[in-house]
Design a binder for these strands. Structure first.
Length: 425
RNA sequence: GCGGGCGUCGCCAAGUGGUUAAGGCAGCGGCUUGUGGCGCCGCUAUUCGGGGGUUCGAAUCCCCUCGCUCGCCCCA
């Protein structure tokens, strides 16, 4: 291997993959348009402070996963690790926040300094939506439904919607106090990771993978019991509304989103067809974020889909084929090459896609490539055609003998050819 | 940051101490100055991720290093 390689965790999207990406992106645009969401595009680079304040100093993302550096003016800059903080900053800066509720979507690269594995890269892409200015139960459910319908609409199966409520900041504070003191009494029975988290991020202990700790936690105080009546009723309303819409879900009380700004509704859509990183869509409500970043108190809710994970599912569950040209233009000889160029422009102007063979190699080779190109038709231009002022059209797809007697056309009759092709394809 | 697996041609690979490193795909040329997935013939790695060591002899054994990959952590 030479040393000109992409950086670790930064991957190229080769022609074999871009078909799937385009498929998802165009489906997303249609889907979001129907949901009356507008696209927003924000810079990839932001001030470090935005993420530190928005995501939370104590989180792993801010603590050890950010691509942060000083620019030439000694400002601390960070490649965005997620989209929400930037979107909030943008609507505050532009004043959109004062123009009524906002319904937005975005799509773009995000960066986190982690060890790559299946379904995780250092540069990855998130497709997300954010609604600002709504606090109703219905707005939560609409956001979930938009995500659910999007993934279902793509044709994916084996999806599970997992749901939890984190309550208000107040609820979580109360729970944290009870939970930590309960754990401190049993600290000796905790695994090492959980002991560490007791001081850094105790709520995440609920997510432990350690079997012993899991058993221990069965008797632990749970967040649900610390929710105030209002929070609890709200969560029940969410569930009832999802049932009304016939969107299946599973309550997962261990679901604790890793970013500080979440409150009330938290959800993930997972798939069995991913590796250990099973979450394809994650989101929730974050009523405190806008004010945290200096704006007016504004309720907000959204989600993000990991594009690479979605691609994994699409490639596994769907069968997309790369596009092929309509016509492969075989030509040999300098003059034929010039005519081929001329002809290709006329055809392309009529929305017919054409691939020209520029190799000037033996006709037999060019035919082989024509076949492999996947084109339905081949046009042959050589000395004979030049002399006789015509070209030969052959069907590649229908390989019958009659095609060798395909009609001939004068150069001046390109329109006839176009009509003919349109009728045949 | 911590574990496991793996690096032989553009791609997929066989080869586990002994003379010139299989094979397949793709590519190029020919059989066939101009007609189709096939067939046949020929060409394409002085070298096995990189560096050092052991040995008469290393792709094969040892050490170091780089990279990829899967998992932990965490998240999309």
């Amino acid at each position: 291997m030479n040393n000109l390689q992409s950086l670790r965790g930064m991957v190229d999207l080769l022609p074999a993959q871009t078909m799937s990406w385009q498929f998802i992106e165009s489906f997303a645009r249609k889907h979001f348009r129907k949901a009356s969401l507008e696209e927003i595009r924000t810079p990839i680079l932001e001030s470090t402070e935005l993420f530190a304040r928005g995501i939370g100093e104590g989180t792993d993302v801010v603590g050890k996963e950010m691509y942060t550096f000083l620019d030439r003016g000694d400002r601390s800059c960070t490649l965005r690790p997620e989209g929400t903080a930037s979107v909030v900053r943008s609507i505050l800066q532009s004043g959109l926040i004062n123009q009524g509720p906002q319904r937005l979507w975005y799509n773009g690269p995000m960066f986190r300094y982690e060890r790559p594995q299946a379904g995780r890269q250092r540069q990855f892409h998130q497709l997300g939506i954010e609604l600002f200015g709504f606090d109703s139960v219905q707005s939560d459910v609409e956001v979930i439904a938009i995500g659910w319908d999007f993934l279902k609409g793509l044709g994916l199966k084996d999806l599970t919607l997992e749901l939890n409520s984190l309550g208000t900041n107040e609820d979580r504070k109360n729970f944290r106090t009870r939970f930590v003191s309960w754990l401190e009494d049993r600290i000796a029975f905790l695994d090492k990771d959980s002991q560490d988290r007791l001081t850094t991020n105790p709520l995440r202990i609920l997510d432990t993978k350690n079997e012993e700790t899991k058993k221990l936690l069965l008797d632990a105080p749970c967040l649900q019991n610390s929710l105030c009546t209002k929070s609890r009723e709200r969560f029940e309303d969410i569930q009832a509304t999802l049932k009304f819409l016939e969107i299946p879900f599973k309550i997962n009380n261990e679901l604790v989103r890793g970013l500080d700004y979440y409150s009330h509704t938290a959800f993930e859509i997972t798939s069995d067809n991913l590796g250990s990183q099973a979450t394809v869509c994650g989101g929730g409500r974050y009523d405190g974020l806008v004010s945290e970043l200096g704006g007016p108190e504004t309720p907000a809710i959204g989600w993000a889909i990991g594009m690479e994970r979605l691609i994994l599912l699409i490639e596994k569950e769907l069968n997309l084929v790369n596009s092929t040209p309509d016509i492969y233009l075989i030509n040999k000889g300098n003059q034929a090459g010039e005519y081929a160029l001329f002809l290709s422009r006329a055809l392309r102007q009529s929305d017919i896609s054409v691939e020209i063979d520029h190799t000037d190699s033996a006709f037999s080779k060019q035919f082989k490539r024509a076949y492999r190109s996947g084109a339905n038709w081949a046009i042959v231009l050589g000395d004979n055609e030049i002399v006789e002022q015509r070209f030969t059209l052959k069907s590649i797809k229908e390989k019958s003998d009659s095609n060798s007697k395909s009609p001939l056309f004068l150069f001046s009759q390109i329109e006839k050819l176009i009509t003919y092709l349109n009728e045949r394809t």
